[in-house]
Simulated assay, not measured.
Amino acid sequence: MVEKEGFAALVLRLRAEGISDLDLLTAVEQTPRSAFVPPQFADQAYSSRTIPIECGAFMEGADLALRLLDRLNVKPGQRVLDIGTGSGFMAAVLGRLTERVVSIDRYKTLVGDAQRRLEKLGIRNVVLRQADGSNGLPGEGTFDRILSTAAFPAMPRFYAEQLVSGGIFLAPLMVSEDTCMMVRLTKTGSRFEREDLFQVPYLPLVPKVASYL
C-alpha cells in the first residue's frame, strides 16, 4: 500500500515538472524502490530526500533519480554505462528500458547487495562490476548512454572514446568549490554539445579508495 501511494505521489510531482514518459514511469512502477532502501527508510523510498545506504554512500531522492533518467533519454536496444551503482535502483530501471546495462561501483558490499536485489526482481540484462569509475570502463567497447551519479572535478576524457556518435553523457560537474551542476553532453561526430541542466547535491568521485568495503 505504501509502495502504491508513494509511487502515485511521485508521479504527480513529476508531471508538475513536465516528466510524463510512460515507458520510464512503468519501469519505475515495476521496480519497487522500497526494496532498494534500508528497511528503516522504507516509508521514505519515494520521497525527494537523499537516503543514506551502506559504505557511507547515498541514494539520490526519487525525484532527482527520475529527473536524471528522463534527461538520459534511453531507448530500447541501447547499451548503457552506469557509474556509481549505489543501491542498484537506477541500474534496475535502466535494465527495464534498454538492452544492456553495465553498472560499476568501487564498493564490493554495494555491488553484492545490488546484485541480490536485481536477481530477486529477475533483471538479467544488468552486469554489475566492482571498479573505479574515474576512467569509465575501458575495454568494454562503446556505449549509447553514460550516466554518472558521482561528481567530477573536471570533464573526464574517457567519455569521448566510450560514447558512440549521437550518444549522451550525463554527469555532475564541480563548477566551483561548493557548486555542482548536472551536465549533459551529446556527441555529434567528434564534437560535444554541452548543456548545463540543474544544480545537484554532490558526492565526489574518489578513485581507488575503499574497494575492500
Rank of each mutant, 00 (worst) to 15 (best):
L128E: 01
S20E: 15
R124W: 01
R129D: 07
F89Q: 04
P204N: 12
E60M: 11
L72P: 10
G56C: 05
M1N: 14
E29Y: 02
L25G: 08
A131P: 01
T109Q: 12
I123M: 02
L66M: 15
K4F: 08
D23R: 14
P52N: 09
R13C: 10
K120Y: 07
Q199W: 00
E161D: 15
L66F: 09
R106H: 10
P39T: 01
A16R: 15
A27V: 03
E54Q: 06
A150E: 08
G77V: 04
S211G: 15
P156E: 00
P138V: 01
R100C: 12
R71V: 00
D63F: 06
E54R: 07
Y212N: 11
P156T: 00
F7I: 09
E119P: 07
L118D: 12
T98A: 07
P201F: 02
V206N: 08
E17I: 09
A65I: 07
L24W: 00
A8E: 15
D63Y: 10
E60K: 07
V111M: 04
R117Y: 06
F89W: 13
A160S: 13
I51W: 03
P32T: 02
L163F: 03
S20D: 15
A16N: 15
D144G: 09
M182T: 05
G136E: 12
G112A: 10
A27T: 03
F169W: 06
Y159L: 14
S48K: 13
S190H: 09
A57I: 00
S20H: 10
I53L: 11
I146R: 05
S87F: 00
A131M: 08
Y202I: 04
Y159K: 11
L66W: 04
F198E: 14
A45C: 05
S87Q: 05
E193N: 06
D178G: 14
A65P: 03
I83M: 06
S103N: 04
A92P: 09
E193H: 14
A57T: 02
V2P: 11
R191D: 13
L110C: 08
M59Q: 14
A151M: 07
I168F: 00
F41K: 07
A62K: 03
C180Q: 08
N125I: 10
S190V: 05
L170K: 03
E3C: 04
R96Q: 13
D144Q: 10
G88W: 00
E5D: 14
G84E: 12
R124V: 03
D43Q: 14
K187S: 12
A154R: 13
